[in-house]
Amino acid sequence: MTNAPDPLDNPVWSALTGVHAHLAEGDGLGRRYPADVSPFSGVADQADPLAWADLAAVAGPGVDLVFPALEHAPPPGFTVAGGLPGVQLVATDAFTSGRSDVVTELGEADVDDMLDLVARTRPGPFGRRTRLLGTYLGVREDGRLLAMAGERLRLGSATEISAVCTDPAARGRGLATTLVRAVAQGVRDRGELPFLHAAAQNTRAIGLYEHLGFTLRRTLQFATVRTPDA
């Protein structure tokens, strides 16, 4: 008897064929998010050339697509245009989640402030419609958005916490910790496992997450893959 694959092993594909299927571009073996939602793409099986062909048909020629976990070289015609080592962390029972009165939910009216904070802190890819991926929470002070975090990849059994960022002037106050705990509480309320991705070189963030009670599940390779030219 063969065990079913763990959705965390192919998280983008799991999201685009599950909770985020309504956002997916493509309905074959390769799918992607709209560019203003997320740069991520996924294929059913990275070892299957047909899946890559489906993805190329969806994306078009000469388009850069981001994979948070590239484990197989793409077939001829595709180009790996860049990448860096990363890690995947999952919450353990030692991680304490919880809500906070200082946290508010962010919506359409907050998008400009969210994009401004992202531009100042660079937590990772974040577009005008990224908030459609899940719940985003923030901390404001005197009307100014100081920090935020939210849900990105939603797998049904697990949800990724992402876009964790704090204005440089407000760091050292524990706002990121408060937001991670609050977002994770919403994830756990649905009976799902909170998880995170981080660049391996971001040892400060990884150390914080491990201190909070996350543990390393696996190492991986973030990669940008360019589709074949026409």
Rank of each mutant, 00 (worst) to 15 (best):
E160K: 04
A176V: 02
G77E: 01
H20S: 04
P228S: 01
E160T: 13
F78N: 03
A182N: 02
P11Q: 10
T203F: 01
A199T: 11
G18M: 06
A81S: 15
G30W: 00
G191E: 00
T79C: 01
A91R: 10
D101A: 15
V111Y: 08
T224V: 14
L89F: 08
R217Y: 00
H22C: 05
I206V: 12
L220I: 01
A163I: 03
A109F: 08
Y209V: 06
R140Q: 06
L70I: 10
L106F: 12
V12K: 03
Q46C: 09
D101L: 14
R154D: 14
P68V: 02
S38I: 11
R217A: 07
I206Y: 06
T178W: 00
P61K: 08
R190S: 09
D64I: 00
R171A: 13
E108N: 07
D113L: 10
V139D: 03
R218M: 14
A4V: 13
H22Y: 13
R128Q: 08
S97K: 10
T2N: 11
V225C: 10
T224H: 05
T203P: 01
W13F: 11
V58Q: 06
F222S: 04
W13T: 07
P85G: 05
F67Q: 08
L16N: 03
R204G: 15
G82Y: 06
T104P: 04
T219R: 14
W13P: 05
L146Y: 15
V118Y: 09
L70K: 08
R181A: 15
T17I: 12
R190M: 07
A24T: 03
P123H: 12
A149L: 06
P228M: 03
T121G: 06
V139M: 07
L193D: 09
M148Q: 14
P125H: 04
D229K: 00
P7D: 00
